[in-house]
């Protein structure tokens, strides 16, 4: 008798658990979206200009470079690795495409630039995928090496495009299509494409599997090294796209223009909710994460704060976002570590 009661109690416990789990799942998967919307509402209320089309499209344009890189890095991170070389690679590819523009023409410059980017991605991919070295250290080494190569290439000089009027190269950074800036188009089109790759193709599924459990993936016939290799190619190609935007916008380049981007990009990816452990995350999350960074900056500027105020807010927001995520998975706010 008592046992039956206990059993009944247990099953109702379970039902409550399930509904609690549902709420938690929604918060876990959509929490960052909810926070994002709250953000937008708060900023809209405090500034008239904030919600205007012009302002919003400005933010999109501003985040397009970091965002485009972040898309590629997201795929690397879901695959269970890091890519710290993207900042240096952005410097290198931007310098390359700008410098070659006047030497071999825009088409050739773009082709060579992407080839160089993919070569760097391939080196990362070989070392992390096939040689199975730690990705943080490999890409840290590549960060240093590529920075060196860039400086050797330019001899320490900045580069620029001499005839800025007579080239269609301005298209990628300065033109508009259907009222929307081309950088925004590049960012969003790449986002949609990579989202489809991640969710609708077998390659995307393999990326999640390899990031979630590389050993079990190998035991299931997934060729881990190839998958990891490909994620680095994608990351490098995305960085190449960002270089296209940056080079075309500035029509010139400093040789350290991408310095520090690797960690800012990662901030956007993390803010969106992609776990550094690999195996989970998504492209839309990263888009939102990057937009949050952009809107914090924009909103605070509109409200009259100095531009570095965004950094302080970003500090708090990153930690809060990840904390809430971790806490909801743990089921309690604080750790039990003594």
């Amino acid at each position: 008798m008592a046992k039956a009661d206990a059993q009944a109690g247990r099953s109702s416990d379970r039902q409550r658990l399930i509904s609690g789990e549902n709420v938690r799942r929604i918060l876990q998967t959509q929490g960052i979206l909810i926070a994002f919307i709250l953000f937008l509402v708060a900023f809209s209320l405090s500034s008239d200009r904030f919600a205007s089309f012009d302002n919003v499209s400005t933010v999109f344009r501003q985040v397009s470079i970091i965002g485009t890189i972040a898309l590629g890095v997201t795929i690397v991170v879901i695959g269970g690795n890091l890519d710290l070389s993207v900042g240096s690679l952005l410097s290198f590819t931007t310098v390359l495409v700008v410098d070659l523009h006047d030497k071999i023409g825009p088409t050739g410059a773009i082709l060579v630039m992407f080839a160089a980017a993919l070569a760097v991605g391939a080196v990362n991919g070989l070392l992390v995928g096939f040689a199975r070295l730690n990705s943080l250290i490999v890409t840290l080494g590549m960060l240093s090496a590529i920075q060196g190569v860039t400086l050797i290439y330019t001899g320490g000089q900045n580069v620029d495009i001499v005839d800025q009027e007579g080239t269609w190269f301005t298209f990628f950074g300065r033109d508009f299509l259907l009222g929307i800036a081309v950088p925004t188009w590049i960012f969003l089109v790449l986002a949609v494409a990579l989202h489809i790759v991640l969710t609708r193709t077998t390659f995307g599924r393999r990326v999640f599997a390899v990031g979630g459990n590389p050993t079990a993936s190998a035991f299931s016939g997934v060729r881990r090294a190839r998958v990891v290799f490909s994620t680095y190619l994608i990351s490098a190609a995305a960085t190449g796209c960002a270089a296209l935007i940056l080079g075309s916008r500035v029509m010139g380049s400093q040789n350290n223009v991408g310095q520090g981007y690797e960690l800012l990009v990662l901030a956007g990816v993390i803010l969106g909710g992609t776990s550094l452990l690999g195996g989970s995350g998504s492209i839309p999350k990263t888009v939102i994460g990057v937009l949050i960074l952009g809107f914090i900056q924009n909103g605070l500027l509109l409200m009259g704060y100095p531009y570095y105020a965004q950094w302080l807010v970003t500090w708090v927001v990153i930690i809060l976002a990840v904390w809430l995520d971790v806490a909801s998975k743990r089921g309690r706010l604080f750790t039990t570590t003594s």
């Binding site: 599924r205 999640f208 599997a209 979630g212 459990n213 050993t215 079990a216 993936s217 035991f219 195996g279 989970s280």
Partner: peptide
């Protein structure tokens, strides 16, 4: 757990 399954993935996947 180490070799058989990707623990965070769904049953179907």
């Amino acid at each position: 757990k180490e070799q058989g399954l990707v623990l965070g993935m769904s049953c179907r996947d």
